[in-house]
Design a protein around this nucleic acid. Structure first.
Length: 113
RNA sequence: CGAGCCGGCUGGACGGCCGCGUCGGGAUCUCCGGAUCCCGCCGAGGAAAGUCCGGACUCCACAGGGCAAGGUGGUUGUUAACGGCAACCCGGGGCGACCCGCGGGACAGUGCCACAGAAAACAGACCGCCGGCGCGCACGCGUGCUGGUAAGGGUGAAACGGUGGUGUAAGAGACCACCAGCGUUCCGGGUGACCGGAGCGGCUAGGUAAACCCCACCUGGAGCAAGAUCGAGAAGAAUCACCUUGGCAACAAGGUGAUUUGCGCAGACGUUUGAGGGCGGCCCGCCCGAGUCUGCGGGUAGAUCGCUAGAGCCUGUCGGCAACGGCAGGCCGAGAUGGAUGGCCGUCACCCGGCGCGCGAGCGCCGGGGACAGGAUCCGGCUUAGAGGCUGGCUCGUCCG
C-alpha cells in the first residue's frame, strides 16, 4: 500500500492536477501528471468510478493500482502530483497488465517533457 | 433403500516476500502543533447489500383537541419498538411430515362485473314442459295465437340452496322432512380469536374493499453530509521570489510559494494641524499617502468531537409449549474519511475435465475452478443475491427381523 505521505488527500489537488496537468491514456488507465504541484514528496491519487464496476470490483482495482504505484514512486520527481483514472474494463485486468499500462503512460509523459 | 418435509452450522487452511489503518508502549527529531522509526494487540459479512419497516441518538417544531395525509388489519402473547417473531384460531392444499393466506366491514352508501348467454342484481322465457282458443287430421298428433311455468337443456367464474316427498294442467319453499347456510336465544368450554350442543325464525342471502368508502389502532418533521466546538482564509486583485516553456535579449504565457487586501456591528485616531506605511539599529530627515487600528459577532475550507461497551457476546441455570424473559459467571470483537483490513507467489485439502494403471473400492499425472458480495452513527427485523460443504429431527413407501 502507499505510505501516507505519498497519498493525495485534498480535492483541490485532484482538481488542479486533472485540470491543468498533462495527460496520457494507455490500456485501462488515464494518467494525469502535474510536475510542480507542491513542495515535498510526490503524491498519487486514484479515481475509480462506478463505470468500472460494483463496490468490490472498484476496491480491488484501486488496491491493485496502489500496489503497482507504490513500486514506481522512485521514478516520480519531488513536488509532482499524479492522478490515475481507471477506465471501464480495468476490473478484468490483472495486476501485471495494469502495471504495464502504467509504465507505458509514464514513459509517454516522460518523453513529452 | 427410495421419495419427500422442516430446520441448524459453515462460507477454505497454512506459509514466504513486500505493505496499510486504529490503539498502547518506547526511541529520535521538533517551528511544541506534531513528524519519523521500532515493538505489541486488534483490524469486514451472513447477508456488511437493497434501504423496505421499527427504534436509539441529534436538531427543529409542539398547551390541548380536531381535520387532512400515510400506514397497519384473525386472537393472545413477546419486545425499546415494529408491517418482526411465537403459539393458537379460521379458510384452502397435501395420504402424511407440513405448507399457503394482501385473514376487519359488502344489510352505511356509491361504483364495477369483460366474453359467452334468452337473461348478470328490484334478474331472466332461447329450447323445453303445460293449459285455453282456432285450424288441419292418418285421431298417435301437427300448427297458429294467447297465457302459465325456473323441474330439465345449453352459456358462464357465478343463474336466486341440495336430496326426497306432498302438491299441480305443468311447476315452484307453495307446503313438509332431513342436510347445508344465514340470523337469533340459551347452555357448556376457552384470557381471546373461536369451538361444541340445544331451540326458534324466515325459507336463501352473488362477487369485488391491492375500487372509492366505513370502522379500530398507530404516526410531528428532517436526518451522523444529524449536530457540537475551534476556525485560517479562499476566489479576484496587487507586490515579490522561484520553476517550466518560447525567445539572442527585453519580455510573454503557465504554474508554485510568501505577503497584503475580506463580511456584519461598535469604538478610537486621521485627510496638509498627516492616521498609517517605506528607507533605517534608533532619532532627525526624506518619500508614499486616505484610510488605519482595536474589540465583539457570524462563519467558508479545514481540523477536532459525535465515534463506537452495546436493547452487546458466550456459558450455565430457572420460568415459559414457544417467541422471549429473570439470575449468576466470564469476555471486549473494526472505527477508516480520496476512505485501512491488502499486492504477488507457493503448498495442502475440496470440486470438474482429460489421460494412464488396477478385477474393483481407488491411485497417479496434467489442466482448470472456488460463489454472492465489502463497513461509513449504532442496533432489532424483513427482502433479495449466493459456488459449495457438514449436520439434526420428522413423514410416506418397499424389503428384512
Amino acid at each position: 500500500m502507499l505510505p501516507r505521505e505519498n497519498r493525495m488527500r485534498r480535492s483541490s489537488e485532484f482538481a488542479s492536477v486533472v485540470r491543468s496537468g498533462e495527460r496520457a491514456r494507455r490500456g485501462h488507465v488515464v494518467v494525469h501528471r502535474h510536475s510542480s504541484l507542491h513542495t515535498g514528496k510526490p503524491v498519487v491519487g486514484l479515481v475509480v468510478g462506478k463505470s468500472v464496476g460494483g463496490s468490490v470490483a472498484r476496491h480491488q482495482v484501486s488496491r491493485r493500482l496502489r500496489a503497482q504505484l507504490a513500486s514506481r514512486l522512485d521514478g516520480l520527481a519531488d513536488g509532482s502530483g499524479l492522478v490515475v483514472r481507471a477506465l471501464p474494463g480495468a476490473a478484468q485486468a490483472t495486476s501485471a497488465e495494469l502495471g504495464a499500462d502504467l509504465d507505458a503512460a509514464l514513459n509517454r509523459l516522460a518523453r513529452s517533457r
